[in-house]
């Protein structure tokens, strides 16, 4: 992409926004506060403002912020209950953690000059692998060897079962990959597209009506995608959790 920008003569660097930078300069060691740290902190702050500060009145008739907090709570809680049943509610705090962190990571990333940590494969892969490992361990702890029934399709013809088992096994291990790349890819692509159009607008100067209209449209779409991808990540986590709690088809 950098090459096309150079050959087009524009000074567009759509990927620069994703660069991890140290906040105070210097090399990046694992403990260095970076823009990742800053925007993770802001996502936590936003969550605290919404869910903790928003609900501090404990009002019987909720204020607007409390109402939004309650809606978010009910949204995720119902999702878990619908997909995994009552026993999945034990994991509600962690799933809520995932949802809020990704949602605010996506949403805050839409602010100009911000940094979107959910566009980084390192972040999303860590989240997805955490879910994958936790769900796999949980599956074996809860069901023992019966958890392997997830790969043995008992209502298929006997001849097909080993083949299906291999396919199921592959698809099981591909889960964290698709789980993480879906989120990071969506975030990265959307932000890069906005940045490219912004570069066009900068190059065209005052006559840049079309790129600006395009930016507005893509931005609206991205606002939707920010929510939908947080939702998708969470609902997939619930689906994997359901497989661990109730293996078999």
């Amino acid at each position: 992409m950098a090459e096309t920008a150079e050959s087009g003569g524009f000074n567009i660097h759509p990927m620069d926004q994703f660069e991890v930078k140290s906040l105070f300069g210097g090399d990046i060691a694992f403990y260095t506060p970076t823009n990742v740290t800053l925007w993770l902190g802001l996502a936590i702050l936003a969550t605290v403002l919404l869910l903790v500060v928003g609900s501090r009145g404990r009002a019987l008739v909720p204020t607007r912020t409390q109402s939004v907090a309650e809606l978010t709570y009910g949204f995720i809680r119902n999702m878990i209950e619908d997909i995994t049943g009552k026993e999945g509610l034990k994991y509600f705090p962690y799933i809520m953690t995932l949802f809020m962190l990704i949602l605010f990571g996506n949403a805050l990333g839409l602010l100009p000059y911000s940094f979107t940590f959910t566009s980084h494969i390192a972040v999303t892969a860590f989240l997805a692998v955490l879910v994958f490992v936790a769900v796999t361990i949980l599956g074996f702890v809860k069901n023992g060897a019966k958890f392997l029934g997830l790969f043995w399709v008992s209502d298929a013809p006997l001849v097909l079962r080993p083949i299906l088992a291999i396919i199921e096994l592959i698809s099981y291990f591909v889960r964290p990959v698709s789980h993480s790349i879906r989120l990071a890819g969506n975030m990265m692509a959307g932000h890069a597209v906005i940045k490219v159009f912004a570069g066009f607008a900068g190059a065209l100067g005052l006559g840049a009506v079309a790129p600006i209209v395009a930016i507005v449209a893509v931005y609206g779409l991205e606002a939707l995608v920010a929510f939908i991808q947080a939702y998708v990540f969470t609902i997939l986590t619930c689906v994997y959790l359901k497989d661990a709690l109730h293996p078999g088809h």
Binding site: T32, L40, G41, I44, T47, V52, P93, T97, L101, V123
Partner: peptide, 22 residues
């Protein structure tokens, strides 16, 4: 760096949600 800070953020978020908010 990213994973380190993400892990810390997850822990903070988890405790804030499970102890206070939820």
């Amino acid at each position: 760096n990213q994973i380190f800070w993400l892990a810390i953020a997850l822990v903070i978020m988890y405790f804030v949600l499970s102890r206070i908010a939820l």
